[in-house]
Amino acid sequence: MQKTITIQVKRYIPEKQPTPFYQDYEVPLETKWGVLDALTYIKDELDGTLAFRWSCHMGVCGSCGMMVNGQPALTCATFLEEYLPGPICIEPLDHFPVIRDLVIDTDAFMGKLKYVKPWLIPAEERSVDDGENRQTPAELAAFKQYTLCINCLLCYSACPVVGLNEDFLGPAAIALAQRYNYDSRDAGQTQRHDVLLDHGGAFDCTLIGECSRACPKHVDPTGAIQRYKADGAMEFWKRLLLPRGAAKR
């Protein structure tokens, strides 16, 4: 019976060495330990200099995403037993600048997220006195799936277009735009079209489908982007062919 498993960590310590290197750690093979538990063990017992992000330990916060044997995964929801006999290779998420060890720089993503205006843009201002925004179950079902995104960025690491084209808004941002586009309370589609139809928008996607396979919450960004392409192409032709104003309504 195997007692330990080797964890191979891609480390980057900029003040010591300008390039990343791999370091092996031997951790106990506890049943029901996730990869995150192994990293916590390393930090607590073997090497306190190891840097990584985590918070909730239950697949909700979206901060512990890393490459596990080359696949983007939430390390809290990925178990050591799935990789017997090991070793398990842990790397920072692909397609992001690495700040230190397994910690990535998410600033570019945060900037892109703002472009798509991921908030309700109502047709007219409402006051508290106007009461609730009512929604039928069918209206909720039209976008609910897209609300489940936890911004864990696994889809960005899975998507080659993100790596090839730094302007690309990326799967999660476009799915979140669609979350508001399909919300019956929202009237911000026209503003989001301006961004999604532009360079770096939905039409930079070449439908590889990896984002949906990587998504731990089954948001299906692939579907969100594909549906946008159909809507966006209609909008593009309307803007091209209809007189100004008519298209913008």
């Binding site: 980057y12 900029p14 003040e15 397609h95 690495v98 700040i99 080659p160 790596g163």
Partner: peptide, 10 residues
């Protein structure tokens, strides 16, 4: 404490 990040290339 904030040296240049390392950006892997495809």
């Amino acid at each position: 404490f904030r040296p240049a990040p390392y950006t892997p290339k495809m």
